[in-house]
Design a protein around this nucleic acid. Structure first.
Lengths: 209, 209
DNA sequence: TCAACCCTCCGTAAAAATCCTGAGGGCTAT
DNA sequence: ATAGCCCTCAGGATTTTTACGGAGGGTTGA
């Protein structure tokens, strides 16, 4: 292969510039474009071809993982390496499910990044042992926590967390107080907690509210 | 001034490497050291002198802002520029109070970073208008939220967030249920919320639990 | 079509939280 | 020593949540 064409998608300009500066020193690859949001990436993919995209998960607008899903339908040969701060299993699992070919945390070093790019570019997957472990550990948890909240439930949860009372919520949603209570009870069962306090805590930690 | 000596403290190796690569291209400064944690920074300051430290807030071990406080007592001439992802007013305010001379979000560009380093190195402060605005906006809020929770209150809050009931908490802490209620009420007043649900949410967001 | 959700609704009763208001002793910093 | 917190405790009234245990109609995917 001549030189690997790479696109960088990250909302932090300094990080992008740093990466570009770093990767430019390597002769085997070429940075053909950069994007500061998922939407911008999808846009520039219409006109730019590349082999590998380094992408951050958390970006303004469309989520990085969602971008991967969309892009892989349109450009099946394009390979994505997720490059993120999040060293949590749940993110790794989601990234894999979204179709990422590699996953690196931002405290990886230059050599690892180059290795990952080279591996992924030839169609291999790159997940180091640390990441693989996170993924496995998370699978079990994932099984338990797979029961997601429905849209309506999330709506109620948000109002509850704002300190609104069941009656107020019922009035606002034009349903009976009973319904609101049912939603709350169902959420508590799903998240396996005993009362509202714990529910809010879990929801907050799961970034649901 | 000959060349500005800079230390980089950030727990993400790729970010450090990127920054080094980026800043090396400028002739007016020299990167003399790097640290991947606050404690490591404090350690290397014992043997290394520098003019400016670029520091991230969120690092393992001692918090970046706490590091600044400690370091400024020992090395009053050392200037800190906070370089972070957090574009929230509360962080800016805390950084200023901790004695930071500059504050940049990681999506600043290379020119801004160089400008900030040069300004700060000669003893000036560097906060661009966006950051200043955040700070001002936050001052009012800060005034209200300055009432911190006491140790006992935090203890109660933790138990509440675990779904424990007032009675259970009272039993566990060997005090009356009344006392626990009082603590809760006081916390709600301090955090300016209406009920437990909102209390937990605020506490979770403030990283208190 | 049938299972599996989702959203809606209910009666009753016990348990818990919230709202009033008030207070005494201890510690600390000015 | 005086103000200002912290921690402790309370009676009584009101409001809210939680625990029981259903149930019917709608959508969706295997």
């Amino acid at each position: 292969m001549s030189s690997i064409k790479v696109i960088i998608a990250d909302d932090h300009q300094l990080f992008r510039e740093g990466l570009i500066s770093l990767l430019s020193k390597s002769g085997s690859l070429e940075i053909v474009a950069e994007a500061e949001s998922g939407d911008q990436l999808l846009d520039l993919l219409k006109t730019t071809t590349a082999h590998v995209v380094l992408i951050d998960i958390s970006m303004p607008g469309t989520n990085g993982l969602e971008v991967i899903r969309q892009a892989r339908e349109l450009y099946p040969d394009l390979k994505f390496i997720v490059l993120t701060m999040h060293a949590e299993g749940q993110y790794v699992v989601k990234a894999v499910k979204s179709g990422a070919f590699g996953y690196l945390v931002k405290n990886a070093d230059e050599n690892e990044l180059l290795a990952a790019i080279n591996e992924v570019a030839i169609g291999k997957k790159y997940f180091n042992s640390e990441i693989s472990e996170l993924m496995i550990t998370n699978m079990a948890i994932e099984e338990e926590a797979h029961k997601k909240l429905s849209e309506r439930e999330t709506e109620v949860l948000n109002l509850v967390s704002e300190g609104k009372t069941t009656k107020e919520i019922a009035a606002q949603l034009f349903v009976s107080a009973r319904t609101v209570e049912t939603h709350r009870v169902n959420m508590m069962k799903k998240l396996n907690v005993q009362n509202t306090a714990e529910l809010i805590k879990r929801a907050a930690h799961l970034k649901l509210i």
